[in-house]
Amino acid sequence: MTNVKNTITMNNNIISTDHLTKIFGKFTAVNAISFEVRKGEIFGFLGANGAGKTTALKMLTGLLMPTSGVATVAGYDVRKNPDQVKRRIGYMSQKFSLYEDLTVRENIRLFGGIYGLKMTEIRSKTTDLLQKLQLEPEADKLVGSLPLGWKQKLAFSVALLHDPQIVFLDEPTSGVDPITRRQFWELIYEAAAEGVTLMVTTHYMDEAEYCDRVSIMVDGKIEALDTPRAMKAGFQATDMDEVFRKLARGE
């Protein structure tokens, strides 16, 4: 890793924003944020509730139009080419994102279909996915009958089905027990190792330590952005929780 110039690092950025802003009426939810996310990185997107991280995430996924500023995701401007962006990203919401009244196989087929995969691809991916998650015996059971941890893992795998370049995970581990959370993070690492970029919002500060880089939003602005280690050093904190408290609450 040598110091390469800007032109090349530009190509390495899978997300880049420049003064991205969202204003609702008189309330500025996201205030001119500018940051980059590198290809293959696990990027933690932190902030207290109401800090603006959900709004920012919605702009990056094409759910909300920015009021001003520019955001490029997977090489496309979210304002001009939201359709191209949508094809190249995966998304897992805070609420459970599969259909509980469909079977495991039907869910995979549905999302494969929605993302325009071919039948043969859907079939082979279904087999791989079931094998990887050891869900073969459950393939034709309703998703609603699976334990929560399995559901989350399945939802994540389905979000990866169409080989997206980036997956946005909006508080994927809320309400999940610690063991399942660990297993879930193993899946995230695995995906990152395969070159997928992951943008994760979380309010578990210990999870922030698992990220390559972390940004912390306060009142619509990104107040800090660095590796967890550098951040802890900069704030003379022992863990991310302390960093967060010093930043967000001004302690």
Binding site: T61, G62, L63, D83, K86, R87, I89, Y91, M92, S93, Q94, K95, F96, S97, L98, Y99, E100, F111, I114, Y115, G116, F168
Partner: peptide, 14 residues
């Protein structure tokens, strides 16, 4: 209510 609408809206479906 279930949150699946968000997932659909993020997908390439119009």
């Amino acid at each position: 209510e279930l949150g699946t609408m968000e997932v659909l809206l993020v997908s390439p479906l119009k």
